[in-house]
Design a protein around this nucleic acid. Structure first.
Lengths: 244, 244
DNA sequence: AGGGGAACGTAACAGTCTGTAACAAAACCC
DNA sequence: GGGTTTTGTTACAGACTGTTACGTTCCCCT
């Protein structure tokens, strides 16, 4: 599974920025939004794993946004609000929120809650979520997420192991974005304490090497998965995503 | 949907009784429990839709109970506790709780939270096979639950043994959801103590292999029942359900 | 320009996981 | 009772995966 992508919906730029930085430092990809139109644009064009939604949004009302979203989406939604009275909370839950956190809040508690909600969503994936299975195209290759099948530019099927498939998915979900070994390991749920810099050993490097032998014309001089010395790896090509 | 059945776990008889009465007045079936053994007895003998779990349980610790339950069960769990400090909450979430409500609490807020959690659980698939007789279609195959008959894409009837049929039903009820061997065994009521990690042996693997020989074009390279190494198996195709 | 150290590539190895053939016991059917 | 089918267990082989060790490449400093 790819790095979780969190949509932070708040019209206050300072709060949005602080939340984004905090979440990025904790391993998430963060996308900002300030309005329902913003939210819907993101939901329609890319994968969103969780939404942090401020109740008070200037001219717009977070509760209305949540209600609107729930008509079409099952994405987890956590309300953040200065309004902590019980009846506000109940209103939030009644429109389909997964949690409601009152400002000011302990950032570590927010983090725990986000992880719990994401873990649950992952554990109990719904049919709706599974319909988001995608197909990816890059440099003549096709990865069919529905059938878990990789086809080469010449048309033959390439067999990948589970970890190799997972790594490819991480790259396909993050084209042209440099990924550290820790980020990749976190996305793959690889053994190792991510907070200890050397705990990963060389396993990610070996795995990258194994995937390269299967998809690069010349693995010794890779064109698709490039090394960024001192950082990690980058999928150095454009990826086209389509549904089905 | 049937009336939700809530298990109230609290060693304080007065609190248990008040909660039970309140929930019954709001339309739920309430079952009391005071210990892990109580909880497990209920979980093993009847359907439980949600658990309200007190953190302080006399000699037992609600967190330990939650942790234990999460090994085998996906039932929603809401902690109730006088301990409301953030680190207590985080501990609760980290062991798999769905929410954490501090005493003293507004009963209406608890009710809203219960309803939200139940609604969410209802939106997702369950391991429990739906008792209603249904027909399922996948990749040209048809399974007629009424007549217990499986028809291949080419139109001929495929004979399955009882266990094979049960396994297929579990997959059809949970398309695209990874299922552990323990989950499958539990759904099939297979011999073996699910709380003992190694008790299953390889029987589920063999059963999966047998079903594969009957429904896969190439059992050595299966398209329908895919292996998730380290986890279990997933029915990797969309399933269309219809009544009758 | 040269040297040293860090980062990365990769072969080899060992442990884990899974597929499956073979077997035996139980269940089922005639 | 006998034959067949079902089911779980056992054993083995192959694939997968991470670790280790060594060689190569890169970068920085003198």
């Amino acid at each position: 599974m790819a790095i979780p992508r969190i949509l932070v919906v708040d019209d206050d730029a300072e709060i949005r920025s602080m939340l984004a930085q905090f979440l990025r430092e904790n391993g998430f990809i963060v996308l900002p939004a300030t309005s329902l139109a913003d939210v819907q644009r993101h939901m329609n064009t890319e994968r969103i794993d969780l939404i942090l939604l401020d109740v008070m949004l200037g001219d717009e009302n977070g509760v209305d946004i949540c209600q609107h979203l729930r008509q079409d989406h099952d994405v987890p939604i956590i309300f953040i609000s200065a309004l902590s009275a019980d009846h506000h909370r109940m209103r939030g839950y009644s429109v389909g929120a997964d949690d409601y956190i009152a400002k000011p809040f302990n950032p570590q508690l927010l983090l725990a809650r986000i992880k719990a909600v994401l873990q649950r969503a992952q554990r109990t994936s719904s049919l709706t979520y599974r319909r988001r299975v995608r197909s990816f195209a890059f440099e003549g290759w096709q990865y069919d997420g529905k059938h878990d099948q990789l086809t080469s530019p010449k048309g033959y099927t390439v067999s990948l192991s589970q970890k190799e498939t997972g790594l490819l998915k991480v790259f396909l979900a993050n084209p042209r974005i440099p990924l550290t070994r820790e980020e990749i390991a976190s996305a793959l749920d690889v053994t190792g304490d991510a907070s200890v810099p050397d705990s990963l050993g060389r396993s990610i490097d070996v795995l990258v090497g194994r995937l390269r032998t299967k998809i690069e014309l010349d693995p010794k001089s890779p064109d698709l998965i490039k090394t960024q010395r001192g950082t990690g790896y980058v999928f150095a090509t454009d990826v086209t995503v389509s549904d089905g």
